[in-house]
Design a protein around this nucleic acid. Structure first.
Length: 469
RNA sequence: GGGCGUGUAGCCAAGCGGUCUAAGGCGUGGGCCUGCAAAGCCUAUAUUCGCGGGUUCGAAUCCCGCCGCGCCCUCCA
C-alpha cells in the first residue's frame, strides 16, 4: 500500500480512495500562453510517476490534467497573460493557446509521459463553471457586486486548512491593493466582467464575463471525477491561494470533502537559484534537447530527486544523467545477451524488487529506488545468473521502465553499422590493428562506440547524439 | 516586512537523535583486465554535514541566533 505525504493533513498516510482499487487524480496542468519550462515539467512528471506507480500496483487510475487556455486576469495590468502574449505576437489568444497546446503535447510524448485520460481545456467548461458559481450564489457562499462575483471567505470556516494561512494574517501581510468592491479583503473572484477583456463569454451571469482563476479546476475536477477526488497534485506555489480556494469553492458547493490527498512538488532551481524567464534560465525541454541531450536524459534528470525536496538543474547534472543511464544501458545489454543463453544459474531478483517497490511506495522515494537498482546491478554482476536468472532480471528491468520510464531508446537495426563492425572484427582476427582502429574511428565519428567483449564486439550509439559542450 | 521551508564532497543527491569511522550516481586519481581501448571489477577521493552558540551520555539529525537560497503573502509547476 503506497503512502504519501499529504499537504492537507501534514503527515504521511496510506492511500485511501473513495472506491476500492480505483484512484481518481487531478493534476494542475499548464497555462498555455508560453511553452512549459522544465520546471513545469518537474510537476507534470510527478503526476506521471504517480500514475505509473499506481498502475503498476494494480490500481485503476483515472487521470485528469487541465489545460488552462483562459488567461487569468491581472489585477494591475488589466490584461491577462493570454492576451498579453497574443498582443506581443500579433495573434489572437486562441491561436496562442492552440499553438502552445500542441507544443505541450509534443513535449509530453517526448518526455515519455503517459497521456492523462482527460486533458480538458478550460474554455470547454464554461457552462460547468457558471453552474458552480450559481450554486455558490444560491447557497450564500458567494455574492455579486457590480457584475463581479466573489467567494465569501467568511462563509467558509475551513478556509486556510490546506495552507495553514489565517485570514487575519493574510490581510495583515497583504502587499497588494485590495479590490474595494469586496466585502472582505480575502474574498476571491469567481466570475469577472470586463467588456475590454479579449476572452469573454455571455452567460446567465451576464455579458462580457470570464472565470476567476481557481474556478476552472473545481469545475473540471467535479465534472470529470466526481465530488471527492482521491489525489490532487501541483507545484508548491499552488498551495495558496489556488488550491485553498479550490477547496473552499468546491466544498462550499458540494458539502463534501473535495480531495483526500494533496501532493505538492518543490520547485526546480537552476544553478542553485531561482529559475525565471527574466533570468534567462527558464529552459524548455526543447532548449535542453537543442543542447544535445535526449528527452530521456531530461526525464531522468527531473525525476531523480525526491519530489518534496528542491531539485537543482545544471548542465553538469545533465552529463551526470547521461552517465547514469549509460551505466544502466550497458548492464541491460549484458543481461539481454545472457538471457539468450541456456546457462544454468539463479536469479536473486526478489529482495531487490521488493526494496525497489518499497522505496517508491514510501512517498515516491525515487533516490532510494535508484540506489536499490544500482545495488542490484552490482549484486547481479557478481552473481552467476545464467540464462534463467538473466531473464528474471530482464523482466524486472522491464518493470523498472514501466514505472520510471527511463529505459533505453528503441534502436532500429542499422545494417551498415553491423557490416562495419564485422569488417573490423575480421581485421582484428588477422591482427590488423591499424585497419581495426581505422574502422572504429569511422564508427566513432558517427557516434557509434564499439566494445570488444568476451562474447564478441558490441556496439551502441552515443546516447546523446553529440557533444553538449 | 510576515509565514513556511532548505543549506551534506568538484557536481547531483540520500540520511533527519546512537547501526554515520555520512548511501547511491557523475566526475577525478591509482590498480586488475585488454593488442590498444571501452565496459566491468577493486581502490582512493566529506575526520565531516552553511556559520556561531546551546540541549543531550550521544547531533548532520533537536533548540536559539546569524548568513545564503527557495516558496507563499501578487500571475506562476
Amino acid at each position: 500500500m503506497p503512502r504519501f505525504w499529504n499537504t492537507l493533513s501534514k503527515e504521511t498516510q496510506p492511500l485511501e480512495t473513495t472506491e476500492p482499487g480505483v484512484v481518481r487524480m487531478y493534476h494542475c496542468g499548464p497555462t498555455v500562453y508560453q511553452r512549459p519550462t522544465i520546471g513545469n515539467w518537474r510537476s507534470f512528471l510527478l503526476a506521471d510517476l504517480l500514475r505509473r506507480l499506481l498502475e503498476w500496483g494494480g490500481w485503476d487510475v483515472v487521470q485528469v490534467m487541465n489545460i488552462t487556455d483562459v488567461g487569468h486576469f491581472r489585477e494591475n495590468e488589466g490584461g491577462d497573460k493570454m492576451a498579453h502574449e497574443a498582443d506581443a505576437l500579433g495573434e489572437s489568444p486562441w491561436e496562442v493557446a492552440e499553438r502552445v497546446t500542441t507544443w505541450f503535447l509534443e513535449d509530453m510524448d517526448r518526455l515519455r509521459m503517459k497521456r492523462p485520460h482527460h486533458l480538458p481545456r478550460a474554455t470547454d467548461y464554461i457552462p460547468s463553471m457558471v453552474e458552480l458559481v450559481e450554486r455558490l450564489l444560491k447557497s450564500g457562499h458567494a455574492y455579486e457586486v457590480e457584475e463581479q462575483v466573489y467567494f465569501s471567505v467568511s462563509a467558509f470556516k475551513e478556509y486556510g486548512v490546506l495552507s495553514g494561512n489565517k485570514v487575519e494574517d493574510l490581510i495583515a501581510g497583504a502587499r497588494v491593493e485590495v479590490d474595494e468592491r469586496k466585502r472582505h479583503p480575502a474574498d476571491f473572484a469567481l466570475w469577472k466582467t470586463d467588456p475590454h477583456h479579449v476572452m469573454k463569454w455571455e452567460t446567465t451571469l451576464g455579458k462580457d464575463g470570464f472565470p476567476g482563476w481557481h474556478l476552472e479546476c473545481s469545475a473540471m475536477a467535479l465534472s470529470l471525477l466526481g465530488e471527492t477526488l482521491d489525489i490532487h497534485t501541483g507545484g508548491e506555489d499552488l498551495v495558496f491561494p489556488h488550491h485553498e480556494c479550490e477547496i473552499a469553492q468546491s466544498e462550499a458547493a458540494t458539502g463534501k470533502l473535495y480531495c483526500r490527498h494533496w501532493l505538492h512538488n518543490r520547485f526546480l532551481m537552476v544553478d542553485g537559484g531561482k529559475m525565471g524567464k527574466s533570468l534567462g534560465n527558464a529552459y524548455t525541454p526543447e532548449d535542453v534537447i537543442r543542447k544535445g541531450y535526449t528527452s530521456r536524459e531530461l526525464r531522468f534528470a527531473l525525476l531523480r530527486g525526491h519530489y518534496r525536496q528542491p531539485l537543482n538543474f545544471t548542465w553538469e547534472g545533465m552529463e551526470d544523467a547521461r552517465g547514469f543511464l549509460s551505466r544502466l544501458d550497458r548492464f541491460q545489454e549484458e543481461i539481454v545477451r545472457l538471457a539468450e543463453t541456456e546457462d544454468k544459474g539463479r536469479g536473486i531478483v526478489f529482495p531487490i524488487r521488493t526494496a525497489f517497490i518499497e522505496a517508491l511506495e514510501n512517498d515516491l522515494d525515487v533516490p532510494a529506488a535508484l540506489t536499490v537498482l544500482m545495488d542490484g546491478i552490482r549484486t547481479w554482476r557478481a552473481t552467476s545468473l545464467g540464462g534463467e536468472g538473466a531473464r528474471e532480471v530482464l523482466s524486472f528491468l522491464g518493470e523498472v521502465d514501466d514505472v520510471l520510464g527511463i529505459g533505453p531508446e528503441l534502436q532500429e537495426e542499422d545494417r551498415e553499422i553491423d557490416r562495419l563492425v564485422s569488417k573490423r572484427e575480421r581485421a582484428r582476427k588477422r591482427g590488423d590493428w591499424t585497419e581495426a582502429d581505422r574502422i572504429r574511428e569511422i564508427l566513432k565519428s558517427q557516434g557509434i562506440e564499439v566494445e570488444d567483449t568476451p562474447h564478441g564486439p558490441q556496439w551502441r550509439s552515443d546516447s546523446g547524439g553529440g557533444s553538449p559542450r
